[in-house]
């Protein structure tokens, strides 16, 4: 895999935003930060973590992304390879599988999420509408029963579409894949989608990395909270948490999660 070098736009508690060609393009979630001096920053010490992190990284620094590793010049490495994820087998799925969510609940969630994302300027109205159109398409094919092959065709068609280092559609696709591949087997006895992400030529290396993890059905804490919600209002509360990720990434991913729920339960 080729190394890529980006410039740090800003440092946040949840990670580092980097930019490419003047646009903020990707947020790097940090689970573990290791400095050359051997200092490990513990994310549990939340409010002080940012302060510590900002000692090592600041706006304008150049970071190199090489597969799972993000390096800042010679002073810092952020290892995504060891990132802690909650895999499907360890998650609590009881509520979501037995839940009485219906079509209206998910349509309500998709509408609210899109509107709030527009309000927060995470998505433009056009982007939200485009994703809603894709959701409608996915619902149609889900109704026809051949979700695997047809969904793969949609991914082929749209992958790489949208702005950002992780294009908006890819974030959306990550949401669908994460949910489908972690829930479909348990809730509906369906087979997981086995996608060869390397076949998806048009997207970026970072996006492929994220999509590969999504195919594994890797669930991390915010998603677990969504799945554990007691009702659609509580679900929306947890979906709002995701909106702060990246620029458009969290919003597109959230809509993907909702689409995934529509076709998985």
């Amino acid at each position: 895999m080729n190394n890529k070098t980006f410039k740090v736009h800003s440092v946040f508690p949840k990670g580092v935003y980097v930019e490419l060609g003047g646009d903020i393009v990707f947020d790097i979630a940090i689970s573990r930060v290791r400095s050359e001096a051997g200092i490990t920053i513990n994310p549990d010490t939340y409010s002080w973590w940012l302060v510590d992190l900002s000692r090592y990284i600041s706006r304008g620094d150049r970071v190199i992304v090489d597969g799972d590793l993000i390096a800042l010049e010679n002073t810092l490495e952020i290892d995504l390879g060891d990132a802690e994820v909650y895999i499907a087998d360890t998650m609590r799925r009881g509520k979501i599988c037995g839940a009485t969510y219906n079509k209206e609940d998910f349509e309500w969630l998709a509408r609210k999420t899109a509107n709030i994302a527009i309000l927060l300027e995470k998505l433009s109205a056009e982007e939200a509408e485009a994703l809603n159109e894709i959701i409608r398409k996915i619902r149609r094919i889900a109704g026809e029963g051949n979700i695997g092959e047809d969904l793969f065709e949609i991914l082929r068609e749209y992958i790489g579409l949208g702005r950002g280092l992780t294009p908006i559609f890819d974030d959306f696709a990550s949401g669908i894949l994460t949910i489908y591949n972690s829930l479909a087997i348990r809730c509906s006895g369906k087979r997981p989608l086995e996608l060869n992400i390397e076949d998806l030529k048009r997207t970026t290396d970072i996006s492929k990395y994220i999509l590969r993890n999504a195919v594994k059905g890797a669930i991390y804490e915010p998603i677990e909270k969504i799945l554990s919600a007691d009702n659609r209002y509580e679900m929306l509360e947890h979906i709002i948490d995701l909106l702060s990720i990246g620029h458009s990434s969290g919003a597109a991913f959230s809509l993907g999660v909702i689409a995934g729920l529509m076709i998985s339960i």
Binding site: K112, N115, I116, L119, E237, D241
Partner: peptide, 18 residues
């Protein structure tokens, strides 16, 4: 904490019909 801001945003969406 972020929760009051989130709850307020959700209420805003309700009040203004979003």
């Amino acid at each position: 904490p972020i929760e009051p801001f989130k709850t307020a945003l959700r209420r805003f969406a309700e009040v203004y019909g979003l």
